[in-house]
Design a protein around this nucleic acid. Sequence first.
DNA 1: TGTATATTCAACCATCTGGTTGACGATCCT
DNA 2: AGGATCGTCAACCAGATGGTTGAATATACA
Lengths: 116, 116
Amino acid sequence: MAANLDSVFSALADPTRRTILAMLLEDDMAVTDVAQPFQMSLTAISKHLGILAEAGLISRERRGRVIWCKLEPDAMRNASVWMQGFGQFEPIDLDAFERFLEDELAEEDTGTETQS
Amino acid sequence: MAANLDSVFSALADPTRRTILAMLLEDDMAVTDVAQPFQMSLTAISKHLGILAEAGLISRERRGRVIWCKLEPDAMRNASVWMQGFGQFEPIDLDAFERFLEDELAEEDTGTETQS
DNA sequence: TGTATATTCAACCATCTGGTTGACGATCCT
DNA sequence: AGGATCGTCAACCAGATGGTTGAATATACA
């Protein structure tokens, strides 16, 4: 889904949002606590969290008054897969990569392990 | 370093630019040839290439009249390393990667944009 | 009930982004 | 030199983005 790559990469393009993700890596956090270390308004942080949630990078769950934000690393998988394909080889090794791809597909045809 | 993540991720956030990168994965290309499959003007593609180059994702070298664009995978690799911190991703799924590439290229070929 | 806390909504603003067109510089080929 | 090709520059435009403030909503608590 290329549209999802759009939203994931543009969500990751903002340093505030990347910092928020790094904070959530340590633990789930309430919106107010997420906002605490930043200089900007709570509304601005709330918007950033909305963008991260829209991209699927986090989820938000209301418990009482508090909305808990939780990292959802699955959303990064597609983007990570897409990116890693570019970093795995030197451009000069393209032919080798093609053979590698074909080998992988051939393995799958023979019923070797299959990831979803 | 963080500023570079800004430029890399925001460069990757545009589907036209991701398609260009996928095209350059196969071979170095002249600007005009990069622009050929797209509907937009050559100027627009030139700007996209400028953004990709600014992010370090490609390099451009003039030979005669022609400017050759070449993929520079190191920049993406750095961003990929950043993403690795956010969870245990599955081992690289090259089959999935190839499907992404095909989706990206198919979008441009058919002109059907899957915008959300 | 009334008040404090947690979060979002609505309106607004400045700046960035992705596109256009037309003119221009650079290079190749007769 | 003259003309075609390659690519960028400059100016412009509509819409997106990231921030603000003030009001509104939802929940908790005394």
